[in-house]
Simulated assay, not measured.
Amino acid sequence: MPESILACRDVAKLFGAKPERFVRDGRLAVDQAALAEAGVVPAVMDVSLEIGRGETFVIMGLSGSGKSTLVRCLSGLLAPTAGEVMFEGRDLARISEGELIKIRRHQMGMVFQSFALLPHLSVLRNVSFPLEVQGRPKAECEARAREMVKLVGLNGREDRFPRELSGGQQQRVGIARSLAVGPDLWFLDEPFSALDPLIRREMQDEVLRLQGLLKKTIIFITHDFEEAVRVADRIAIMKDGRVVQIGSAEELVLSPATDYVRAFTRDAPRAKILTARSVMAPAGGATDFAGQIDAGQRIASFAHDVESSDRPFAVVENGALLGVVDRIAMIDVLVGRERKAAA
């Protein structure tokens, strides 16, 4: 994994009367039953994770799983009841309020589901607003805002107000505003869940395009596994305030750690997730191949060729033969396992 930019260790967030009484030496020192008896609600429990610089890390779970509370702890919006959040090696709970505000204004950007645009300001002024808060010169603010508006494809709409834009365009303004400060860390909290499916996919494409250009570290919150698959390098699945598994989409589908993860990924589009490496069989001395497939290719990209051939395809990596894939292997992974599970 690349160099860590953000990490949390044994983070817990409790809501209720005097939650700090359940903390010893900075760690939670009580079980869930005792918390319930005391009327204290554990929103996040004992979460430890590490996020690499330039990584797109998705945190997902159903409503009430604790994902949004965790993100607010990671961004410094909420102080954890126990544990520590380290940003570039600094514990956010141990720095001054002024330093924390400076970090959040200059090194972090956030996009919310609700867009959170200022209705009385134009597109340009909405985008330049965080720069104005920093006290930058007006000309610099406007020039940077115009650059960001162009980046998200809204040039020509700088003078419009939020009410004059579609939902997708409003979210683009939110994205432009969050990027205006040049953040090292970009938080996207279910940013597209209020959008229609077609616009939602368009906005996912926009995030992928921007990540390809800017190479930001992204923490993306969603409850939609297909959305997570499209944007994530790694995915953390949460349940009842705890992280139950972290891995790539392929790892979660092929090796679910719990029944909950298995149920969560059951309807995942396997052909778009699994690679040739996942479906290949040993070559066994075979030499008569219909063609070659790179080990990292998704099944969807080669399924038609394999299905229409009587001969297997060689699975290769850096020119070396790793195995073979044929129609039977694909059916076993894409259909066979699910049929066995259903049986």
Score class of each variant (00 low, 15 high):
A79N: 11
A79G: 07
P80R: 09
T81N: 06
T81W: 06
G83R: 10
E84W: 07
E88K: 14
G89K: 08
R90Q: 12
D91R: 11
R94G: 07
I95V: 11
E99G: 04
L100I: 02
K102P: 05
R105A: 01
F115E: 02
F115L: 02
A116G: 03
P119S: 03
H120T: 11
L121C: 02
S122E: 04
L124P: 05
L124I: 14
V127C: 04
S128C: 10
S128L: 13
S128P: 10
F129S: 13
F129Y: 15
P130L: 11
P130H: 10
L131H: 07
Q134P: 02
G135I: 06
G135E: 06
P137W: 11
K138C: 08
A139P: 11
A143I: 12
A145P: 12
E147P: 13
M148Q: 15
V149Q: 11
K150V: 08
N155T: 15
R157Q: 15
R157K: 15
E158M: 11
E158L: 10
R160K: 15
R163G: 09
E164D: 12
E164S: 05
E164R: 12
S166L: 02
G168W: 00
Q169T: 00
Q169L: 00
Q169I: 00
V173C: 02
G174H: 00
I175A: 05
R177G: 01
S178H: 08
L179N: 04
A180C: 06
G182D: 09
G182Q: 05
L185N: 01
W186K: 02
L188H: 05
L188C: 11
P191R: 06
P191L: 03
P191Y: 05
P191V: 01
F192Y: 09
F192V: 01
L195D: 01
R200Y: 10
R201N: 13
R201K: 15
M203A: 03
M203Q: 07
M203W: 07
Q204S: 09
Q204P: 08
D205W: 02
